[in-house]
Design a protein around this nucleic acid. Structure first.
Lengths: 119, 119
DNA sequence: CTGTATCCGGTCAGATACTG
DNA sequence: CAGTATCTGACCGGATACAG
């Protein structure tokens, strides 16, 4: 363990890292792509058909973003009808608690919006 | 690599709620605004000066979005030089674990990107 | 099957100027 | 202080067509 990594709420003020991260995750389609990939390795076409209204071009772009961010790993098979698999890197896999937290919150949010009292 | 989804939330597949939530949180400026507001109630100008490169117009728009999403509460004082305070609703306050999870992950991410080995 | 190249149209960030 | 109105340009999503 090479660094002092005492995070959790200390660096939440004006942290450009947090900023970059949340906007990357929230960028259109990325949330859903990650959601699918956290379920395991998937092929290009599997991703496309798993996500409604997502086109080839869009999927390709987002996958590139995610790959160059070090979140997704791309593996090309040398088989004949080419197959490409995508999976989370281990950094990517560590998004699990994040995605879970968001999923949990979104339920609270929805409940509150449909009749709950606020504050 | 586990193929089975064995975590808390059961609705992470193709859930439009999750989708909406993550894009709202990841929308430009919103992450940072929430970050500041989780530290407590703030005035308009406090928010603006706390966040770099954020203009009046942008802040105003995002605050409206957040308010109509039920995440932020707006309070106008009837004092003379008007004062407006913004604070999180209780739904908004429940974003704390989400923001913490993202902050934690962003540190992991940064560490990994600057020399770490990926998967 | 798995992409890339290109174009187009809408949207939104950002600037400026103005209001209560 | 706390916004709103408006305009413009850049960027991005989406579609189509094509390539390896």
């Amino acid at each position: 363990m090479p660094e002092t990594t005492s995070h959790t709420a200390m660096n939440r003020d004006a942290c450009p890292l947090f900023h970059t991260a949340i906007e990357l995750l929230g960028c259109r389609w990325n949330g859903q792509i990650l959601q699918v990939l956290i379920g395991g390795r998937r092929r290009f076409s599997e991703l496309r058909s798993a996500i409604d209204d997502l086109t080839d071009a869009m999927l390709s772009r987002r996958l590139k973003d995610l790959e160059s961010a070090g979140i997704v790993l791309r593996e090309v098979s040398s088989a004949r009808p080419i197959e490409v698999h995508y999976e989370l890197t281990n950094v990517g896999a560590q998004l699990l608690p994040v995605l879970d937290a968001i999923a949990d919150w979104s339920n609270i949010w929805a409940r509150e919006r449909s009749g709950g009292s606020e504050l």
